[in-house]
């Protein structure tokens, strides 16, 4: 099935309840090939052109779910939402970026999905469209399962506030070539609200927000002046974020394995370095 519009796609979904939507197929077809999934039917979203671009609406950008990572990584998009562009640019190899989509990344909800911490830090919302019409859900609610995608629903748009301030995404994969994130940090400044928002990806099933660390560091910034902090603050922020997002091995559940402690220490250090660097880049 290859619908050409969102309406067509939604009604096609309603008509064949067993159908699974496929956008770039980079996640889905892997599961099919591995025999993990045998969809009754596939609903290709590739021709739904209205989902492949973006528009502006009340100080926010309304991004189509079909935007590819390659498209988001281009300079015009990067000028709009820099952190999301940075995240998209680090997704897999070019072949995957050319077809993999924003919507697919969100619906797959892989812990190491690179756009997810950015969307969490930006407090983005998504528009889900089903036979009964559309509804607006916070990305974090969708990811945590608080308000999941219902059967027959498609993810149509992602609403991202335009903040007109520095924002970054940093990903550590442990090597030079493309890699899933071992940990990632997105940090955005919201000067209007004098807020710093930060989300850590890949260390838990969903992106984590270190709210206390955010508030603390926002208080350290001279919002009316140079917007700088001294290196000690950046360092402390890094550690604050890391201790909030990576639990001590051993304290969590009794069954911590012997090699879990060094792994947790390592991860904590990585998150701390990423958060420190992220703050440094945002305030540069």
């Amino acid at each position: 099935m290859l619908p050409a519009s969102l309406d067509e796609a939604v009604s096609a979904m309603a008509e064949s309840p067993g159908a699974v939507p496929v956008a770039g197929g980079t996640d889905l077809m892997g599961a099919v090939n591995a025999g993990l999934l045998r969809p009754m039917a596939l609903l290709g979203l590739g021709r739904v052109t209205e989902l492949r671009g973006w528009q502006y609406q009340d100080g926010a950008a309304l991004l189509g779910a079909g935007l590819t990572h390659a498209r988001m990584a281009r300079p015009d998009f990067a000028a709009l939402i820099p952190a999301l562009a940075e995240a998209a640019a680090t997704v897999g190899p070019p072949q995957v970026r050319n077809v993999g989509t924003l919507g697919g990344n969100i619906v797959s909800a892989h812990p190491a999905g690179d756009t997810l911490p950015v969307l969490a830090a930006l407090e983005a919302t998504v528009t889900l469209v089903g036979p009964e019409g559309g509804r607006e859900v916070a990305v974090s609610h969708l990811l945590t399962g608080l308000d999941p995608l219902r059967s027959g629903e498609l993810l149509a748009y992602v609403r991202v506030p335009l903040l007109h301030a520095p924002q970054v995404f940093l990903k550590a994969g442990g090597r030079t070539g493309p890699s899933r994130a071992v940990a990632s940090v997105s940090l955005v400044l919201d000067p209007a609200r004098r807020a710093v928002r930060c989300a850590v990806g890949a260390v838990a099933p969903v992106p984590l927000r270190p709210l206390e660390a955010e508030q603390w560091v926002a208080g350290c910034i001279d919002w009316d002046g140079e917007r700088t902090v001294d290196p000690g603050v950046a360092q402390a922020f890094g550690e604050y974020v890391a201790s909030a997002c990576v639990p001590d091995a051993g304290t969590e559940g009794g069954a911590a394995r012997t090699d879990a402690a060094p792994t947790a220490a390592r991860l904590r250090r990585t998150v701390s370095v990423l958060a420190r660097r992220a703050l440094g880049r945002a305030l540069k």
């Binding site: 940075e86 680090t90 990903k171 550590a172 994969g173 442990g174 090597r175 070539g177 990632s184 660097r277």
Partner: peptide, 12 residues
Amino acid sequence: WLLPEGPGCAGD
């Protein structure tokens, strides 16, 4: 300069 961690990632 291609950094450890690769293009556009966390390298400093």
